[in-house]
């Protein structure tokens, strides 16, 4: 038995891979549910009902998908250039706290049409700074950015904690550690009345399309893909590797920071250390499920959001811990890796 590279990669097979991966992940999670004695079909039906059963549920799922699309894009653009940005979580928090710092008073007097774009840029810049720092350490000291971005996640969350218990503490929060609220003028408009769905979803989807066009149609996109496929060959062909990586790092960190900004401006209005239940880490899974395709990220983010929102309702109904959603999402990363492998290779006897 040996492994053999496929001579051509059928497009259908690549589109099919995430479906197989998700089904396989659901099957394994199903076994974990079955072990507790709860009916698997009942549990999955509850997840679907909780995430998509009512109009309100659908809007909640899309609200959850919004930051996930952005962190998914952040991972996808970086991984495409083989820049291992695992720091989406930290960049999310730095983006969020930057928005709280500027949005509480500095932009409070501005009209919404000005305040919102300014704060979105501020959030993106926050994430950028953190990612470019990690890339700088790689370029200057040869430090693997996987480890630095992972470690910086902890530093970033502690920094946020320091800010919301210190200079940015909300004095009106009855002693709870939370940041000063962003002024109302910068709240993202609701897409549907009496739901939490906000314009951040449109921003995320538009950015997915923009990133897709950037990668498919521009010199920068070509260079970042070349750097990912074969950095040495790209270097010989005249691709400015360091400059391309810096741009990729800005884009990736910026998208993750923007996710934090959007979550503050669209949903929460202020920052706490539990603002993100792991959006940054989930973004990595989403990027892989999408096979690093920016448009696929939208679909993958909705899948993850369905699992997370649905599992909360399911947990209340049948008593299975909602962590089963995290198990399924994490498993789908591993099964997707295997599925992708079989689009590239086949096993011959």
């Amino acid at each position: 038995m040996r492994i053999e590279a496929r001579s051509h990669h059928p497009r259908g097979l690549i589109l099919f891979a995430p479906v197989v991966a998700i089904l396989a992940a659901l099957a394994v999670s199903g076994a974990l549910i079955a072990l507790t004695g709860v009916s698997v079909m009942e549990a999955y039906a509850q997840i679907l009902a909780g995430a998509l059963g009512t109009r309100l549920a659908v809007t909640e799922t899309l609200t959850r998908a919004t930051p996930l699309i952005l962190t998914g894009l952040a991972a996808a653009v970086a991984f495409r250039a083989r820049l291992w940005n695992i720091g989406g979580e930290g960049q999310f928090f730095i983006g969020a706290i930057a928005v709280a710092a500027v949005g509480a008073e500095l932009t409070a007097g501005l009209p919404a049409a000005l305040a919102i774009p300014v704060l979105l840029v501020v959030g993106a810049a926050g994430g950028m700074v953190l990612m470019v720092t990690a890339l700088g350490l790689r370029l200057r000291f040869n430090v693997d950015e996987v480890v630095t971005t992972l470690l910086l996640n902890f530093v970033a969350i502690l920094f946020v904690s320091m800010m919301i218990e210190g200079p940015l503490r909300d004095p009106m929060a009855f002693g709870w550690p939370q940041s000063v609220p962003v002024a109302d003028n910068a709240a993202l408009p609701r897409l549907i009345e009496r739901t939490r769905l906000h314009a951040g979803l449109l921003i995320a989807v538009l950015l997915a399309v923009a990133v897709y066009l950037l990668q498919a149609r521009t010199v920068f996109g070509m260079r970042s893909r070349a750097a990912g496929h074969n950095a040495r060959a790209a270097g010989f062909a005249g691709v400015p590797l360091a400059r391309t990586l810096v741009m990729v790092a800005c884009l990736s960190g910026g998208l993750a920071g923007l996710a934090g900004a959007v979550q503050v401006l669209g949903v929460r209005g202020y920052v706490t250390t539990d603002l993100s239940p792991g959006f940054g880490y989930a973004g990595i899974v989403i990027a892989m499920l999408a096979n690093l395709n920016p448009l696929g990220v939208i679909a993958a983010a909705v899948f993850a959001a369905v699992m997370f929102i649905g599992a909360d309702g399911m947990s209340r109904a049948v008593g299975i811990p909602s962590y089963i959603a995290d198990v399924t999402v994490a498993l789908s990363l591993l099964t997707m890796l295997v599925a992708l492998f079989f689009t590239q290779y086949r096993i011959r006897r």
């Binding site: 996987v146 880490y281 990595i284 899974v285 962590y323 999402v329 591993l334």
Partner: peptide, 25 residues
């Protein structure tokens, strides 16, 4: 299979942590 050691390892971390919390709960 020779899959990316970075991404596989992170997948194992996410899976093992989630499974720990699930069993604990």
């Amino acid at each position: 299979l020779g899959l990316s050691q970075h991404v596989t390892g992170l997948g194992i971390t996410l899976f093992a942590s989630a499974l720990s919390y699930y069993i604990f709960r």
